[in-house]
Design a protein around this nucleic acid. Sequence first.
DNA 1: TCCTTGTTCAACTAATTGGTTGAACAAGGA
DNA 2: TCCTTGTTCAACCAATTAGTTGAACAAGGA
Lengths: 121, 121
Amino acid sequence: MAGDQLSRIFAALADPTRRDMVARLAAGDATVGELADPYEVSVQAVSKHIKVLSDAGLVSQHKDAQRRPCHLEAEVFDLMTKWIERYRQQAEERYARLDAVLAEMRDERPTDHHREHGAAS
Amino acid sequence: MAGDQLSRIFAALADPTRRDMVARLAAGDATVGELADPYEVSVQAVSKHIKVLSDAGLVSQHKDAQRRPCHLEAEVFDLMTKWIERYRQQAEERYARLDAVLAEMRDERPTDHHREHGAAS
DNA sequence: TCCTTGTTCAACTAATTGGTTGAACAAGGA
DNA sequence: TCCTTGTTCAACCAATTAGTTGAACAAGGA
């Protein structure tokens, strides 16, 4: 399980070290060695982190002699943003409706002017 | 490790079942039992999933007799969106600049074929 | 050619996680 | 009161994962 890209992306970014690397790469491409420098972990561990980001499509690498510079693939972030926005908006709309209903109830109570127009779920 | 909220949020959403539950909750509050219904897993497993979402701040629960209806906390999504947008924009700006530089180079030597993109700045 | 640099592979360990079952607990309803 | 419903706790298992070390490999430079 956890095979789809969205799962891989979220899982990749659940690790603070990897988020840090993404932040670093947003400022410019970097080799695995350069990325490993600020951390106390082994280069191999960093290489593994890059693989995770790479499998998620967040990072690509191209050959340059014996180096493999890492490059942030910003477009993939759209997948996440779309997913997030969809449910946030849905939830917020629900609240807008609820607020409207509550406001209406507040309005109707003191004067009892207009009658209700059907139940809101 | 993985103690900060952003890590918990990303980790929580890395699981497709939990993303599904978020989708369900975006349409309206639901009890643990109702959430468990469409899945083949035990109610206890669903309860654990809700705990993960709850620890991440994505879901809250309130008491209603013996029920504990789950409620999606849409505001928390902002944390993610902000993090994502920051680095995406940063990366995109970098490309805008790179594109400008490449365009300039193209203008300056029309005969030279376009080069591979190396590290910027 | 041999040596150095940069990266990855392989094997292993410890910790985490998603699932299970069985028991407990909390709040109504008979 | 006892019974049912809804939820969580506890203990356990299998799979995954972040880290380690040691070895391999690929590409220049002497």
